[in-house]
Design a protein around this nucleic acid. Structure first.
Length: 428
RNA sequence: GGAGAAAUGGCCGAGUGGUCGAAGGCACACCCCUGCUAAGGGUGCAUACGGGCAAAACCUGUAUCGAGGGUUCGAAUCCCUCUUUCUCCGCCA
């Protein structure tokens, strides 16, 4: 959520910055709504003040045993007018809130401007794609004999669900373990285990709602709609970030660095026909997530550091990758700046996204009301960051493709072998 | 699932219809006093939004005592619904 004060004082500037990310801010509509709000609020508050003053007088008069019928009559006449003013104000306020909640974040000044993914800027490439002296297979064909089973997944749950069996299930688990151990042991993140079902308030906090309900899986308890809507998490960014919603943190507690391994559920609405083959785009996939709660002045250094933490996983696994800065037009709703990490997939002969690290600045904390007390004792909104470290399913894809051998086996990256009972390869 | 109790400021805790945004204590900040320590005295100390202001300081208004509704001229206090916590019973991995 943007600061409404900024909209009030600098709306043209805000509109221009939003235009860079392809969002048309309706300045006129805002100004009209704002004028209406101001008039209604002033009127309402005047009436409330009048009522409060009269009620106070009644109290005093009664205590002194005086006659109060005159004041009673006077204040009674306020009733309807006050009720109307309150109703009107509430309606406008709600309209303004909903609208505000649907405006994306402002891009940071360092973000390259551009229209779509073609305007993203490559920052660096690390590692050299391996050259193969045999006909390579994609991960679907490499994985099939090892226990990668799309048919059974489809039988159980439909398209975009998969069953992993045997060594490949273990490899999948090994990847998550390696990531989690690295982030907790070497990067200083606190491991969390969190719910996979959350209330809508959490999704409002991190920005999945109100705008992106169609991307989520909604769940019901016993088949009945409860008093609050609940959803499967699409990322543990939601739970990790919302652990501090509504809190006023102490400055010395910051930064907070959280990590969790969780499944992610995404309806993938609107992606029919895209990445239908294989594990790339699933309704359910695992991810190890990093979340950081930072002081504003530290958040951009933290973003760089967190990208480095995600990169360390790829370096450890020996997978070639590149880091790109998303342009203004390609960033997600809540991000002020995003780096994507793309891993080399030899069968696709291209780099594919495997991590996304974003600084949301105060966009989420303003929605969640997460603040900290600064040196002057003032409450300031924190900055929130999140990043995949990494998407486990896609990492599995990358390992299968990059480490495949001519005989159909897959070499296990060195760092994973302790998790694989010491094996150096599977299959073949 | 059943029965009961509870939810108040950073924390503890008083407050059952009227100068209550809320006593008191703790914590915290500043000042005074005290030759250390401890104790004592004073002052300050919730949040959001609106208006005044170019802005800060400040002044002022409104709202907020788990959430949402209701009764009333007036609600922390009464009524309803919900949420959460605790105790007991049942069920269950």
């Amino acid at each position: 959520m943007l600061d409404i004060q900024l909209l009030r004082s600098n709306i043209d500037d805000v509109a221009a910055r939003l235009a860079a990310r392809g969002y048309q801010l309706d300045v006129q509509a805002f100004n009209a709504l704002e004028a209406e709000r101001k008039a209604l609020q002033t009127r309402m508050q005047e009436l409330q003040a009048k009522r409060n003053a009269s009620s106070k007088q009644i109290g005093i008069a009664k205590r002194n045993g005086e006659d109060v019928s005159a004041i009673m009559a006077e204040v009674a006449s306020l009733g309807d007018e006050l009720k109307n003013a309150e109703t009107g104000f509430d309606a406008v306020q709600k309209q303004q809130d909903n609208w505000l909640m649907s405006i994306p974040n402002l891009p940071h000044e360092s973000v390259p401007s551009g229209k779509d993914e073609n305007d993203n800027v490559e920052v660096r490439r690390v590692g050299t794609p391996r050259s193969f002296d045999f006909e390579i297979k994609d991960h679907v064909d490499v994985g099939a004999p090892l226990g990668l089973d799309f048919d059974t997944g489809a039988k159980l749950s439909g398209a975009r669900f998969t069953v992993l069996k045997g060594d490949i299930a273990r490899l999948h688990r090994a990847l998550a373990q390696f990531m989690l151990n690295t982030h907790t042991g070497e990067h200083g993140y606190l491991e969390h285990y969190t719910p996979y079902i959350v209330n809508d308030s959490a999704l409002l906090g991190t920005g999945q709602l109100p705008k992106f309900a169609e991307d989520m899986f909604k769940v019901t308890k016993g088949g009945e709609e409860g008093t609050v809507d609940q959803y499967l998490i699409s990322t543990s960014e939601i739970t990790l970030t919302n652990t501090v919603s509504g809190e006023i943190l102490k400055a010395e507690e910051l930064p907070l660095k959280f990590t969790a391994h969780s499944p992610c559920f995404r309806s993938e609405a609107g992606s029919y026909g895209r990445d239908t083959r294989g594990l790339i785009r699933q309704h359910q996939f695992d991810k190890v997530e990093m979340v950081r709660i930072e002081k504003p002045e530290d958040s951009y250094a933290a973003l760089e550091e967190m990208v480095g933490h995600a990169e360390n996983i790829l370096k450890g696994l020996g997978l070639p990758y590149r880091v790109i800065t998303l342009c203004t037009g390609d960033m997600g709703f809540g991000a002020a700046k995003t780096y994507d990490i793309e891993v080399w997939l030899p069968a696709q002969d291209t780099y594919r996204e495997i991590s996304s690290c974003s600084n949301c600045e105060a966009f989420q904390s303003r929605r969640m009301m997460t603040r900290f007390k600064d040196e002057n004792g003032k409450n300031q909104l924190v900055h929130t960051l999140n990043g995949s470290g990494l998407a486990v399913g896609r990492t599995l894809v990358a390992v299968l493709e990059n480490y495949q051998n001519a005989d159909g086996s897959v070499t296990i990256p060195e760092v994973l072998r302790p998790y694989m009972g010491g094996k150096d390869k599977i299959g073949g």
